[in-house]
Design a binder for these strands. Structure first.
Lengths: 213, 213
DNA sequence: TTTAAATCGGAACTACCGTTCCGGATAATT
DNA sequence: AATTATCCGGAACGGTAGTTCCGATTTAAA
C-alpha cells in the first residue's frame, strides 16, 4: 500500500450499504414519512455535490445542502463511506447498463467507441466516479469488486468483438484501454478537461489501438 | 476552482522558495554549519519520502526521517508548500534538461518518443511530481508557471519537429499529448502502474498520434 | 574559555473532519 | 387529544495535520 504512515481513524469496514432501504419497506416497519423524505434529500444532495467536488467534500457540506442536520445524515448512512458507496454504486451500474447497450450494437467498432466516449464523459462529469476509479483512497476493486468485475467483463466483450471484427489490435488489454481513458479524464487541472478536449483525447486513444492494415 | 467549500488554513501564499540558500552564502552571513547540514538532510528526506508517498505525507514524517525536530524543519522551510515546491521544482528542471537532450536528437521522432517515455517514467517513479502534475491541490501552472512554460515550449518543439518530419499528425496539440501521458501514470491504483505497463500505454499513445500513410 | 547569536526540538495551539450523543421535535397510533 | 416509538439537529468528542513558540543547546567569534 505504501500509503498510510499511521492513520486508522475509525472506519469499521462497513461493507453494508443498505439502510432500512427506501424501496422494499413493506415488511419490517415502513420508514416514517419524514425519514423517507430526508433519505431522498440526502441522496440527491450527495449525488450533486460528489459529482461536482468529488468524494473529499466534508460530510457536513452534504448535510447542509440537503437541508438536514449532521445527525440525521448519520442516521441514514452510518458512515461517510456508506454514503458515497451508494452514489458510486449507482454510477457503476449505470456504466454497466451503457456497456450492455453498446454490446448490442451490431457494429463492434462503433459499440466500443460509443462506450469509451460515454465512459470518458461520465468520468469527467461525475467527479466522485472519477475519484473512485483509481485514486483518492477508495479502491473500487475491493469495495465494489463484483460490480466492477461485471463492468470489466462487458468492456472485455466490447474489445474482443472489435478485435474479432479486425478493427482493433489484438495485443491491447481491456485494462490498458480503460487506464488510458480514465487517465485522460484526470488530465489537466481540477474540474477535469472540457468535454471537447476529452473526446479529442479519446480519439487519439482509439487511433492508438486501431489495427493497421 | 470549484474546490474549497470554506477552508483557508493559514497559507501565506509564500511564493518564495529560497531560505538563506545553501549555495550562495558567501555574503550576508554564511549559514551556520549544523544548519547547512540539517538543510541538506531535510531536502534529502523530503525528496525520498515525497517520491514514495506523494505530497500528502504529514510534515513530521519528513522531519522524523531527516532526524530533525519539526521546529527545525519549519526554520528551514516556512511552510509545507515551500518544502515540496523546492522538490517539485528540481523535478521540473530535471524534465526540462531531459527535454533539451531530446531536442538535440537528430531523429525527431526518436527525440519525442524518448522524452515521453522518460516523462512517464519520472511521473510514475516520483509520486510528488505526479501529484503536482494535475491534482492533489497543488497547481503547477500557477505556482511554477515560468518553469512549466519553458517545459511546455520544449515539448512543443519536440512535437513540431516530429510533425515536420512527417511522423506525427499535425492536429494533435502538445497539451493533448502531455495530458495523455500524464493520465497514463495516474491510472491503475495507488503507487501507479508498473513501468512495463506504463510503457505499453505510452506506445499506444504514440501510435495514436502517428501520422498515417 | 567565555559569551552572544544562531539554531534546535518538541510541546502546545489552531483548524478541520468524521463520528457520537442526547434532549427536543415529529409522526403514527389509540 | 394523548401517547410513544421514531426521528431530528447540532453541540461536543477524538483524532489528524500544519504551524507557532520558547527554553535548551550548539556554534562561532572574542
Amino acid at each position: 500500500m505504501t500509503e498510510d504512515h499511521r492513520r486508522a481513524h475509525g472506519a469499521p469496514s462497513a461493507t453494508e450499504t443498505a439502510p432500512p432501504a427506501v424501496s422494499d419497506c413493506v415488511e419490517s416497519r415502513p420508514m416514517r414519512a419524514d425519514a423517507a423524505r430526508n433519505h431522498e434529500k440526502i441522496l440527491q444532495a450527495a449525488e450533486e455535490i460528489f459529482a461536482l467536488d468529488g468524494v473529499m467534500v466534508p460530510i457536513d457540506i452534504v448535510a447542509e445542502r440537503a437541508g438536514v442536520g449532521i445527525g440525521t445524515l448519520y442516521r441514514h448512512f452510518p458512515t461517510k463511506e456508506a454514503l458515497y458507496e451508494a452514489i458510486v454504486m449507482t454510477r457503476l451500474t449505470g456504466l454497466v447498463a451503457t456497456a450492455d447497450e453498446c454490446v448490442s450494437n451490431p457494429n463492434a467498432q462503433e459499440g466500443l467507441c460509443t462506450f469509451l466516449r460515454e465512459f470518458a464523459h461520465q468520468s469527467s462529469e461525475k467527479k466522485d466516479l472519477f475519484d473512485a476509479l483509481g485514486q483518492a483512497g477508495i479502491d473500487v476493486k475491493a469495495r465494489f469488486s463484483d460490480t466492477v468485475d461485471v463492468l470489466m467483463a462487458r468492456v472485455d466483450t466490447l474489445r474482443q468483438r472489435a478485435v474479432d471484427a479486425g478493427t482493433v489490435r489484438a495485443d491491447v488489454g481491456t485494462t490498458d484501454i480503460l487506464n488510458l481513458v480514465m487517465g485522460s479524464c484526470h488530465a489537466a487541472g481540477p474540474s477535469g478537461v472540457d468535454d471537447s478536449s476529452l473526446q479529442r483525447l479519446v480519439d487519439i486513444i482509439l487511433a492508438g489501438i486501431e489495427k493497421r492494415s
